[in-house]
Amino acid sequence: MEDKIWNCILKRLSETETELTKACLDEWLKESPDHVQKYKEAKFLWQLSAKIKPEQHEGSFEAIKANILVASSVEVKPVKLSFWKYGIAASLIGAFLFSLFYFLNTNKPANQKEEWVIKKAGVGKVIQIVLPDSSKVWLNSGTELAFTTNFNSKKTRSVKLTGEAYFEVKHDPSHPFVVKSGDLVTTVYGTSFSVRAYRNESSATVSVNSGKVGVTAPGNESAVFLLPEDKLRYDLNQKSFLKTTITDPDVDSWINGDLIFDQTPLEEVLKTLSRKYDVRFETGSANYKGCMLTARFQNKPIQEVLKTLQLVMNIQSEQIDHTIILKGGTACN
């Protein structure tokens, strides 16, 4: 049987199946009586494997094989096994045992929780971390990154991101690097790219400096692939993608304290400024909906940014401690 079907069978027998694997197996079983028979045979071998002591799960493939074959001599109510009749037990057992060995050594018990390492960049801070595989990640202000303690031992190098981060991923084709950021899932093998997915923003973006990445999200059947200087914006409300070319290639400029806004909604600009400068904005009854800002600030203080808002949009500002009150402004609707 194909690896996909073996996986679906193992998920059911171990009571860890998902809706997807359940549908996959149910459909396969309906295809022919032969498939039903093969499932019964696999279930029988699984029952035999239950006689292995828990501490033996960490053993070698040969050790598990030996224990299951010994267990088969114990009285178990068997199904009618066609592979015994036709003398092909060795090949089927071999295939099943290999899948079982993989399952036992790569899946934790349901009641054993994974341990996560969480790294955070405080307000107004940018930090760099090095992952267990030597990949480098820069976290922007107000960003959180999480990865498991067994990061290096998994088939997929997976991290969870809330906020904005720039990645330099170590090349490893056999272990894809996956960034889960809200609805977005970004998969790479070795490249440099930036992901922005803050909880309080209506869109998420992925920008690529080098290499190739694939991005998926709910409502989109296939992955969108990005090459250097490609930028993908995902609208969280519309569940839609917009792919563009980066007008300014410095997707990692914020690492050095720079701010780049390219037709960025003013609401998003203010959220970015709040995180970077640890301030809070009050707009009162002013309506800045539809206002966009295009500007670049090379590690400038907040006062310089406020002067630009005054010149470009006629927005007046008054700062009291960590609160900045905005007044006036040119209508942008």
Rank of each mutant, 00 (worst) to 15 (best):
A121K: 01
N314Y: 14
V137I: 06
E62A: 15
D252L: 05
I88V: 15
C291Q: 00
F61G: 04
L139I: 05
T216Y: 04
V123C: 12
Y277D: 02
A331I: 11
H57L: 09
V179G: 00
V279W: 02
N209K: 15
V74M: 14
V74C: 12
I127W: 00
Y102S: 10
E55G: 05
P265L: 07
D235N: 12
S91P: 04
T106P: 07
L69S: 13
G257C: 09
I255V: 11
S134W: 03
I325D: 00
I302V: 14
C24M: 12
E27C: 12
T16H: 08
R233D: 11
K327T: 13
A110W: 09
R196W: 03
D34N: 14
S60A: 10
P78R: 15
R12H: 12
V169H: 01
I320V: 14
L184H: 02
K43W: 09
G94Y: 06
P132Q: 03
I129T: 10
R196H: 11
Q310D: 15
V251T: 05
A90D: 14
I68E: 00
P228V: 00
E201N: 13
K154N: 12
E268D: 12
A217N: 06
Y166G: 01
W6V: 05
P33C: 10
C8I: 05
S32C: 15
K307W: 05
F61P: 02
S192N: 05
E221F: 10
